[in-house]
Nucleic acid binder design. Sequence first.
RNA 1: GCGGCCAUGGUGAAACGGUUAUCACAGGGGUUUGUGGUACCUCUAUUACGGGUUCGAUUCCCGUUGGCCGCCCCA
Length: 460
Amino acid sequence: MMAKKIIKASRVERASRVAKVEVEAEETVKKQRAPKDLTTLRGFRDVLPEEEPYWNRVRDNARQLAEYYSFGRLDLPLLEYADLFQRTLGKATDVIEKEMYVFTDPSGYDVALRPEATAQTVRAYINHGMLNRPQPVKLYYEGQMFRHDRPQAGRYRQFNQFGFESIGEADPIVDAQLIVIGERFFRDLGLNVVVEINSIGTSETRKAYVMELVSYFRGFRKNLSEDDKRRLQKNPLRLLDSKEPYMAELLKDAPQIVDWLDEASKNHFMKVLEFLEEIEVPYRLNPHLVRGLDYYNRTVFEMYLAGETSSEASQGALLSGGRYDGLVEMLGGREGTPACGFACGMERVVSALKEAGVDPNPRFQPRVFFAQLGDAARRKGLRLFEEFRAEHIQVAEAFGKGSLKAQLEVANKMNAAYTIILGQKEVLDGTIIIRDMDSGAQEIVDAGKVVSIMQKRLVL
RNA sequence: GCGGCCAUGGUGAAACGGUUAUCACAGGGGUUUGUGGUACCUCUAUUACGGGUUCGAUUCCCGUUGGCCGCCCCA
C-alpha cells in the first residue's frame, strides 16, 4: 500500500519533471541565438579603444571634482539583495516593477543587479556605522547600473553612472553645493547645461497635494489619454510632466506643488535658490519637475543640455538628483538622518561630448617607433624598449614584423616623429640609426646614448 | 511593456526575382635579400538567423534576434 503510493507519487513527480524539462528546453531553444551570431546582449555594448579617451575625460573630471570637494570614493558591489531596492525605490516605479535584473543566486537568495546606487550608498553608510564620522559623510561612486528596459537613444541596459552623495546634513547649502558641483562638471568638459529645479516637499504635504491633483484631473478624466489615465491611477505626479499636447492647457489651472509646501520646505527651497543666485549658477524653476524614485523629498533637480528642455531632450536628463531625507531611516539607520545627492548618466555625457565635437585628448600617443632587423637586433631591442620605459618615453614597436618596410609603414600610420632602426650591422658596430620621419634624414649614433639623445629631441 | 523604421564583408555603400554578390576604404600577406607617407598583386561575406512563395530569392511574405527612433519610464 505504502509502496504503491510512493511509486504513484514518484511517477507523477517524474512526469511533471519531464514536462517541466520539455517546457524549459523549448524555451531555451527559442531564446538561443545562432552560434554564428556572436554579439553582446541587447542593450549591452563594448567600449572600444577609440571611445575610451572620452570616457577617461569624464571619469577624470568627476574624480577631480570629488577630490576637490572632499567626497570619498566608495566602491560598491554590483549585486545586492533585491530587497534593498524593492524597499527604497517605490513599488509603483517601472524600475522595480519590470526593469530589475532579479534572480536567485546559487545560495537561494533573491539578488538583483543594482539599478542605481543611492540606496546602496545609504546601505553602506548604515552598515559601516558612518554615523560615527563627522557629518555630513560625503561619498562619491562610479560604475555600472543595470535596468532591463528597451534600448533607445542614450539608454542602455547596462550603463554607467557616477554620483555624489552627502549624508547627514540638512542645511540647504548642501543641496546648492551639489548643484554647483554638477554644473561645474559639465562646464569643465565644455558642455553648457541648464539646471531645472523644484521642491516636492515632504511625503505628507505631497500626499495632500496628490489628492488635490487627482481630484482636479478627475474632472477631466474623459479627456485624458490612456497613458494619463494610468498615471492618474498609479502615479499622479507623473501627470505633471506628461508629454500629451493637451496637457499644457490643463496644467495651467492645476494645483501647483509649491503652494502645498509646508513652511520648513518652502524656506529650505528659498534658501537653496538664494545660494544658487549668490554663486551665479543659472537655474530654471520647473514646477512640474518630479522625480521618478520614491525616496526623494524637498529639493529635486535635473540638468539638460542647454537649448533643450526636459520635455524635448532627446535622451533625457544628463544628471539628476535631490534630497532624500527619509531614506536612511527607511533602511534602518538613525532616525531623521538627512541626505542629498545626484547621479549622472555617463553614456549620455560621452555622447554629448562627441556631439559637441569636444577634443577627448587621447592619452597614448607614442612619438617614437622602434624598428628592428634580425634576431640579434630584436634581442637588443627588447632591452632598449625597457630602457626607454624607465625614462618614461613611450615607444611603439612591431617586433612581430620582419621587413623594415612593413615596420616603417606602421610607424608612419601612427604618426611617429622618429623611428630608431637597429639592424645586424648596427648591433655589431654598437650603433643605432635615428630617422626623422618628417624630413627622412637619418643619423647614426652610439647605441648607448640613444635614450638620452631621444630625450633631448622630444623636448624640442 | 507598446508602436514606427531598418538589417549586404571590419566600415560605408551597390546589385529590374536570374551568371563566380559589385565598389571604395580599412586590415592581413606579398612585389627576391635593410627604408614609410605615392604603385601593383593577393586574401578577407554560407547577403543577421529560421521558415515560406518561386524553376530560381540579397531582392517578395512570415517568424525570431538585433539596431535606430517615439511612447512608457528613466541617467
